[in-house]
Simulated scan of single mutants.
Amino acid sequence: MLQHPEVKGPGIGLLGFSKGGDLCLSMASFLKGVTATVLINACVANTLIPLHYKEMTLLNIGHDLERLKITESGLVDLVDIWNNPLEKLNCQSLIPIEKAQGPFLFIVGQDDHNWKSESYAYIASERLQSHGKEKPQIICYPNTGHCIDPPYFPPCLMSVHRMVGQEVFWGGESKAHFMAQVDIWEQIQTFFQKYLKGKDSTFHNKL
């Protein structure tokens, strides 16, 4: 990617959502050339399956489907099934983000019903600062759920989840979620322009 002709800055930026968020956290922690990272409703620990890199293995945080809840509408609510990454049995799933070189932007939907994204963002902030790293930027959006798409996409408040094979409630209120998607796009553009823009590069927002 660093050799791509469209990459004008000193490094590349990463943008990850949900499971893609913890993958981006791992990439920023272990790979060189990552200048800035944006996480949308991401977990601070490795999720679902173990992650292997060279001789290192990050365990997955683990979950218990016995803690699964069903809403009044018959939808699955997953928010409480995930284990606490700060507990001793789960700490080997925590991503060592203090090894990252670039800044972070955490975007949080405060009505995320997939997992506790706001809590994870502040765990990441405390971990970075405890290692003498820069405090990450955290932007929280009330009444906004898990599935945050680009602006003008219809809000996805529920859909079928492959892991459980049922309709899952992702959270959010339609209008607030829609407006958040518009603002989040601008926040991402601003963040990447600040940290990725090379001398000869230009950003064109066509949305």
Results as ranks from 00 to 15, higher is better:
Gln3Met: 11
Phe153Ala: 12
Gly13Trp: 07
Trp115Cys: 08
Thr37Val: 08
Lys194Pro: 05
Gly16Met: 00
Leu68Met: 13
Gly11Ser: 08
Pro10Glu: 15
Pro50Cys: 09
Ser29Met: 02
Leu89Lys: 15
Val164Asn: 05
Leu128Thr: 09
His177Val: 01
Trp115Asn: 07
Ser29Gln: 07
Gly33Ala: 06
Thr71Ala: 00
Val168Gly: 03
Ala100Tyr: 02
Gly145Ile: 08
Asp111Phe: 11
Met56Asp: 07
Leu14His: 03
Asn90His: 15
Asn84Tyr: 06
Leu31Glu: 11
Trp115Met: 09
Ser159His: 12
His113Ile: 03
Asp200Met: 11
Val34Gln: 05
Ala36Met: 13
His146Ala: 00
Phe153Arg: 09
Lys135Thr: 13
Ile49Val: 14
Lys206Phe: 08
Arg162His: 09
Ser117Val: 03
Asn46Arg: 05
Asn60Thr: 06
Lys19Gln: 12
Asn90Ile: 09
Tyr152Cys: 08
His161Gly: 09
His146Asn: 04
Cys156Asp: 14
Ser130Ile: 08
Cys156Trp: 03
Ile139Ser: 03
Lys19Leu: 14
Gly172Arg: 00
Phe104Pro: 01
Pro154Phe: 00
Leu68Thr: 12
Asp22Val: 14
Ile49Glu: 15
Ser26Pro: 05
Gly132Leu: 04
Ile123Arg: 14
Phe30Thr: 11
Asn90Phe: 13
Ile138Phe: 09
Cys156Asn: 12
Leu196Trp: 09
Ile188Pro: 06
Asp77Gly: 01
Met179Cys: 07
Ser201Arg: 12
Lys197Gln: 14
Met27Pro: 05
Lys69Val: 04
Val38Leu: 07
Val76Tyr: 13
Ser159Lys: 13
Asp77Ala: 08
Ser73Gly: 10
Arg67Ala: 06
Gly198Asp: 04
Pro142Lys: 01
Lys19Tyr: 15
Leu105His: 11
Met158Ser: 13
Asn46Ile: 04
Ala100Pro: 02
Pro96Ser: 06
Ile188Arg: 07
Pro50Phe: 09
Glu186Ile: 03
Gly9Ser: 10
Pro103His: 04
Phe17Glu: 01
Pro103Phe: 00
Leu75Asn: 11
Glu134His: 08
Leu65Cys: 07
Ser159Trp: 02
Ser93Tyr: 07
Ala42Ser: 06
Ser174Phe: 10
Gly198Tyr: 04
Leu105Val: 06
Pro10Tyr: 03
Asn46Leu: 01
Leu65Thr: 15
Trp185Gln: 15
Ile12Ser: 01
Pro50Ile: 13
Met27Arg: 11
Ile138Asn: 02
Leu31Lys: 07
Gln189Val: 10
Glu186Lys: 14
Ile138Trp: 08
Glu173Leu: 12
Val44Phe: 12
Gly172Ser: 04
Leu94Val: 14
Ser125Asp: 13
